[in-house]
Amino acid sequence: MINFHYSRASDVADAVQQIRADPAAKFIAGGTNLLDLMKEDVERPSLLIDITRLPLKTVGETAGGGVRIGALVPNSDFSYHPLIEQRYPVVSSAIRAGASQQLRNMASTGGNLLQRTRCAYFYDTVTPCNKRTPGSGCSAINGINRGHAILGTSEACIATHPSDMCVALLALEATVHVAGPKGERAIAIADFHRLPGDTPQRDTNLDRDEIIIAIELPAQGFAKNYTYLKIRDRLSYAFALVSVAVGLEMDGGTIRQARLALGGVAHKPWRDFAAEAALNGQVASPETFRRAADVLLRDAKGFAHNTFKIELARQAAMRALTQAANGTPQSQSNKKIA
């Protein structure tokens, strides 16, 4: 860990100003990801700009009927907020499926969006990694890749995005509000994270002199028929091998509108309109679910240790759709699969 300077941002404009002034500066929120990476010498910021005192800590309803969550709302407050629990339970559930209570108390909404991959080579500065050191090579492609991506990979990188929260946000079509030197802009969550392509060093489309100020959830929350199903190597406190967020709008036994997103399978939370199209207007049945899951995984490609994820993702998607359609969402405290 290298020495660094520390400063506190007085307001959003000041934060943007400070980050522009120093190309090696970084914002710090909960620090649960950044500090670990600094200790491993993966991140080597010259300056930490503490944004934890900025007034971005409220959860409130928007004029359009949605809900806006400040970037510094802790993950636990986000998850347990009554508005979120009632209207967007899939988000509450997804957040609770991640990390531990202690970490969720520290972690911020903005930081969760920007958490970096858990690829072991990315963390170990001794090994080549294109994401950490562009052009050095990808150690995972022919190395240990059991946890790696099966969709949207490139020759340069096969890492996954580890967030649970973001999978639910993607299913709900959330918007990310950011502020930068040119003012504020809104980025659809689907456009926020990137595929690795030949620039795996860039995880997102956020510019380096921009700050996340809020997340906005649209009015439709799929609160009746939803689930977040996370499959991992132990029953808690582990990153997803595969996870599925589902929201269904049902009309009796028929699916009027479906949302389906996968986590743990790609460099970004994964959503596929064709898979949702295979559900929309169909009777909720095992055959329908199987067809949709097949579409969802049609381009999946495994590597030496992670081919199992393709079938696992297919089965998990079918199960999650069943849970959502039946109104029996996965519990995050009772670890029995519903």
Binding site: R118, A120, Y121, T127, S139, D233, L235, S236, K335
Partner: peptide, 30 residues
């Protein structure tokens, strides 16, 4: 039975899960 395994990348001869986030032992839920 279910979790513990030290993962070595044999190309580098290095242990790749040398931390207790990735070297799994049971947690309360298990």
């Amino acid at each position: 039975a279910l979790h513990e395994e030290t993962l070595i990348d044999h190309k580098f001869g290095r242990i790749m899960n040398a931390n207790i986030a990735e070297y799994h032992v049971p947690v309360n839920a298990d």
